[in-house]
């Protein structure tokens, strides 16, 4: 039987699909809150992306591992308990390893709990699929999310202060402070969505095979 091969290829396609074709932010518009709030600096965006990916993967994995034990009627509470446990762990670990960035993320690290992607993946995927597959599915979603955070963080930090990771790259840069506050963030995200959709449309016409219904 080539079951293993099929499973591996299925895992891979879920993984790729979650990064690009059904990117959590561009396509599903999930978890926008933190993506806009923490991307004023690239370092914050990177750490936030990694944290979300980590919590997503590990909580999906564990939920999927015990999915047969979870009583149906309290499953949402179980998801939340597991997710919030790992969010607190991430919060404490960040405080130990990167205190500066941890302070920079402030309350938004706690808000990973309500990041719709986490509950979404748990309910839509992890509860029905084996651990390995759930892990890959979450990794794809997490990386797709991180990708958007990085693009936003890169543009916003560069435009606001002419620097990246706090290192000044453009001297005598006129700060566009609008980008660091809400209106600019919204406009920037909208512009990135336009670019994404243009690229995606181009891709779709190039290879129709890649597109399959979810």
């Amino acid at each position: 039987m080539s079951g293993n091969g099929i499973r591996a290829s299925k895992g891979f396609s879920t993984f790729v699909e979650n990064i690009w074709l059904s990117n959590p932010i561009f396509v599903m518009v999930l978890g926008v809150c933190s993506s806009l709030a923490v991307t004023t600096k690239l370092a914050n965006a990177l750490v936030m992306g990694i944290s979300v990916t980590f919590v997503l993967c590990i909580s999906s994995f564990i939920i999927s591992l015990v999915r047969k034990l979870i009583p149906e009627q309290v499953r949402l509470i179980v998801f939340m308990l597991i997710i919030s446990t790992f969010v607190i762990t991430v919060d404490l670990v960040l405080r130990i390893l990167v205190p500066e960035v941890s302070k920079g993320l402030g309350p938004y690290i706690g808000l990973i709990i309500t990041n719709c992607n986490l509950m979404g993946r748990a309910e839509a995927f992890a509860i029905k699929n084996p651990p390995g597959l759930s892990f890959l599915d979450s990794l794809g979603t997490g990386l797709g999310y991180t990708l958007v955070l990085l693009v936003l963080g890169f543009l916003r930090e560069l435009i606001t202060s002419g620097s990246l990771f706090g290192i000044v790259l453009l001297r005598n840069w006129t700060s566009w402070n609008l980008v660091s506050i809400a209106p600019g963030a919204f406009f920037l995200l909208a512009s990135i969505i336009i670019v994404f959709n243009m690229l995606k449309r181009k891709n779709k016409t190039a290879s129709v095979t890649a597109d399959k219904p979810r």
């Binding site: 309290v74 179980v78 308990l81 607190i88």
Partner: peptide
């Protein structure tokens, strides 16, 4: 369900206290 929740909560709490 209740037993499951209690066990899970205690596990989480112990883990977090350690961290």
């Amino acid at each position: 369900a209740l037993v499951f929740l209690v066990v899970l909560t205690s596990l989480c709490t112990v883990f977090l206290s350690f961290t």
